[in-house]
């Protein structure tokens, strides 16, 4: 099947701005689904609110466009009722870690078999460019005309500490790498977090003088390095890319199934 067969083509061209990294992430994600030969009917995508959340309208899977920050809560409900389905939850940086911060850490703690994708463009694009918990200090935003003073979350460290059993990072520039990581994340049995750095040329790029979409994409290349590479060793200020943790741990739906079985056996006696 071609990648476009996984799209609801009637909604195209999509609403994302020219050069928005979210489109490239959709592209990489569809390639991962295609290469894994997953059936459209076995995939559920839930999303929250924001530019990133519009992604669930464009894919021809089962989809739920839900409340701001609550995509993981809805996904948890779907997964518990139908554990055989594959859950994909793309979220924006604010959606995942500000409004949905609590849902994020608790889904990770439970290690439920869901793939969470944080499409991190470091800004709230849809509402006009407010800074998010992933903007970091020294960033200009509508709500920080004299630059931000807030430190940012490190999604990778946060997800590992909260209990996610698969945590990785890539960028929109590294599209092929993103696809490979997403394939592994989807196949992983447990809570997978994949942070993909995205570019918002309309708000973040313009305010922070990072140039157009192409210049911002080039920054993904120059500001990041592969885990374990010599480049990263020589310059620890670079953002590390790759798979940070991948381990087998008790998965929530399986454990829940055991409890159900146990309770039913007791009732028979």
């Amino acid at each position: 099947m071609a990648v476009t067969d996984y799209l609801r083509q009637r909604f195209f061209p999509h609403m994302w701005c020219p050069g928005c990294g979210h489109g490239t992430i959709l592209n990489s994600l569809l390639r991962a689904v295609e290469e894994l030969e997953l059936s459209k009917n076995d995939i559920v995508m839930t999303s929250g609110i924001g530019c990133s959340a519009r992604i669930s309208g464009y894919v021809d899977f089962h989809s739920l466009h839900t409340l701001h920050g609550r995509a993981l809560a809805f996904a948890t409900g779907v997964k518990l009722s139908k554990p055989e389905l594959t859950l994909l939850v793309p979220m924006g940086d604010g959606d995942a870690l500000a409004i949905g911060g609590n849902h994020f850490i608790h889904a990770a703690r439970r290690n439920i078999d869901i793939t969470a994708i944080v499409m991190n463009n470091r800004i709230y694009g849809m509402t006009g460019g407010q800074f998010s918990p992933l903007s970091g200090p020294g960033v200009k935003a509508t709500t920080a005309p004299y630059t931000t003073i807030d430190a940012n979350f490190d999604v990778v460290k946060l997800a590992i500490a909260a209990g996610a059993s698969f945590v990785a990072r890539s960028t929109a520039y590294h599209a092929r790498e993103s696809t490979e990581i997403l394939k592994k994340a989807i196949m992983h049995k447990g809570f997978s977090v994949v942070e993909i750095l995205s570019q918002c040329p309309t708000h973040y790029g313009r305010k922070n003088k990072e140039g157009d979409a192409v210049a911002m994409l080039e920054l993904h290349k120059t500001n990041t390095a592969k885990l374990g590479s010599k480049q990263l060793e020589e310059n620890p200020n670079l953002v590390a890319r790759g798979i940070f943790i991948q381990e087998e741990r008790a998965e929530y739906c399986i454990e829940y199934g055991k409890i159900v079985e146990h309770a039913q056996r007791r009732n028979v006696k």
Partner: peptide, 13 residues
């Protein structure tokens, strides 16, 4: 295929 995989509009094949 670098154009195809990076196109944010999924417009190139």
């Amino acid at each position: 295929k670098l154009c195809e995989i990076r196109c944010p509009d999924l417009a190139i094949e």
